[in-house]
Simulated scan of single mutants.
Amino acid sequence: MKNSKASDVAILAIFIAIMVVVQILSQIVYSVWPLPIVPTLLHIPVIIGSIVLGSKKGAFLGLVMGIISVVNATVVTLPSSFMFSPLQPIPGTNHGSIWALVIAIVPRILIGVFPYYIYKMSKNQFGAGLAAFVGTATNTVLVLGFIFLFFRAVTKQTFGALLASIITGNSIAEVVIAVILTMAIVPALLKARGNQ
């Protein structure tokens, strides 16, 4: 039992290290990236961690992803930073919004919960792919939905524009990458842990 817990903590630490590396590399690569599509990749370790380690540890990984998002938005000022960090002022004001923490953290925690239960219904490669789809959709729909809900007055976004932004090249790229990687990695990790 102790070995199993120690193994889970080690795997959790590895996932967190992967997330930090993915974040740093994404910043570097996307600064010179020539294409208009800039997919988020940080949610993929959260999805895989959720399936392999369970919903509680998945939720913790999601929380870490949310914290990384807040720190990044606080340190790197972009036009959208105020949506993810309460320390970045809302355009036209000299203060941030506490709702930025909800946008940055709540969807990310749920990315770590939903995939575990989706995969549990169908413990195979298809289930892993479906879990990746649901996890990615959770991130996209909730983040954009919360931005619409809390910052509509600032972004001047209509509901139609919200729907259009959910179905973009970025969203499609994120789903495809997440599904492919999750379907490839999850069976190998579960086999290595003796869960399959």
Rank of each mutant, 00 (worst) to 15 (best):
S171H: 09
G54M: 07
L42Y: 06
I105C: 01
Q27F: 11
I67Q: 02
A13R: 07
A10Q: 08
R108H: 02
I111R: 04
S80V: 14
A6G: 05
V76N: 02
N72G: 05
L63Q: 04
V29H: 04
S50V: 11
I67T: 07
V76K: 04
L63K: 05
I16M: 13
M183A: 13
T77M: 06
G135K: 12
P34D: 01
V21L: 13
S26R: 07
H95G: 08
S85V: 09
G58M: 07
A131N: 04
I18Y: 06
I98N: 00
I167K: 03
A6L: 15
V71F: 14
I177C: 08
D8W: 15
T158I: 13
I167H: 04
F84Y: 14
A100R: 10
V186K: 14
A132D: 07
I44A: 07
G96S: 08
R108T: 00
L149I: 15
R108Q: 01
Y116H: 10
V186N: 10
G194W: 14
A188D: 05
I37L: 10
I147H: 01
F150H: 03
W99G: 00
A164M: 15
I11N: 07
K2T: 13
M121C: 04
G49V: 12
T93P: 03
A128P: 00
V106S: 10
G58H: 05
T182D: 05
L144F: 11
R152V: 01
N124P: 07
G194P: 03
A184M: 15
P86S: 01
L149R: 09
L142Q: 03
A153H: 06
V175S: 05
T140V: 11
V175Y: 12
V32H: 11
A100Y: 09
S55Q: 07
L53D: 02
V9E: 04
V20D: 00
V186E: 03
K191I: 08
S50F: 10
D8K: 15
I67P: 00
K5N: 13
Q88R: 13
I118A: 08
